[in-house]
Amino acid sequence: MTAVPTSWFLLLSAILFVIGAGGVLLRRNVLIMLMSVEMMMNAVNLTFIALSRHLSSLTGQIFVFMVMAVAAVEVAVGLAILIELNRLRATTDVDDVSSLKG
């Protein structure tokens, strides 16, 4: 029944996660960083769904549901902060925002 092995999905998930992480680490544009975070979350979601099938349990899917809710909130708040930041500093470059420097 399982035509495609679970491990394939896990591998794909890992690749997507690392790409997303790379985006967060390498890009300086906050917008792109947020997108990358979304991609990382999606990679995790894929893992959940794959394991949900692998273990014949719906819990994974419920988790994905919750992750989506959190992701929606995160994007909404994150973008609101981004707009406010842009209004204050006229920039979307994270390296320009380092007032937390110790």
């Binding site: 999905f9 794909l12 917008l31 949900s52 099938r53 899917q61």
Partner: peptide, 30 residues
């Protein structure tokens, strides 16, 4: 891929929430 994993409901939600809402939001901000 979710459909391929027998999770059709989540697949629909994925399209609705991420593709429909979040990406549009990103585009607005851009």
């Amino acid at each position: 891929l979710y459909v391929l994993l027998n999770a059709q409901f989540i697949a629909i939600v994925q399209v609705a929430v991420y593709a429909g809402a979040i990406v549009v939001l990103f585009l607005f901000v851009v």
